[in-house]
Simulated assay, not measured.
Amino acid sequence: MRQTATRPASGKHGSRNKDDNRPNLYQEVTSRIIAELEQGQFPWVQPWGRATAGVGLPRNAVTGRCYSGVNILILWGAVIEKGFPSQHWITFKQAVGAGGFVRKGERGTTVCYADRFIPKSEAERTAQDGDEPATVPFLKRFTVFNIAQCEGLPDDLAREAEPLPEREIVPHAERLIKATGADFRIGGEQAFYVPARDFIQVPPQPAFHEQINYYRTCFHEIGHWTGHASRLARDLSGRFGSALYAREELVAEMASAFICASLNIIPTVRHADYLATWLDVLRQDDRAIFRAASQASKAADFILGCGEGVETDAVEREIAA
Rank of each mutant, 00 (worst) to 15 (best):
T4F: 13
G14F: 07
N21K: 14
R32T: 13
Q41H: 11
Q41W: 00
W48V: 03
G49I: 08
G56H: 01
G56Q: 02
L57C: 10
P58G: 05
T63K: 02
S68K: 11
L75G: 02
W76Q: 01
A78P: 04
T91G: 09
F92V: 02
V96N: 08
A98S: 14
G100I: 03
F101R: 14
F101P: 00
F101G: 10
C112F: 08
D115L: 02
S121A: 15
E124Y: 08
D131A: 15
E132S: 13
V136D: 00
V136E: 00
P137N: 04
L139I: 06
K140A: 12
F142Y: 15
A158R: 03
I169N: 12
H172G: 05
H172E: 15
K178D: 14
P195Y: 11
A196K: 12
R197T: 13
V202A: 06
Q205C: 09
Q205E: 14
F208N: 00
F208S: 05
E210C: 03
E210A: 12
I212V: 14
Y215N: 02
T217E: 05
C218K: 01
E221C: 03
G223L: 00
G223R: 00
R239L: 15
L244E: 13
E249G: 11
E249V: 12
A252I: 07
A252M: 04
F258N: 03
S262C: 06
I266V: 14
H271Y: 12
H271S: 09
D273Y: 05
L275Q: 09
T277V: 06
D280P: 04
L282K: 05
R283A: 07
D285E: 10
D286F: 13
A296Q: 08
A296R: 04
V310I: 13
A320S: 12
A320L: 03
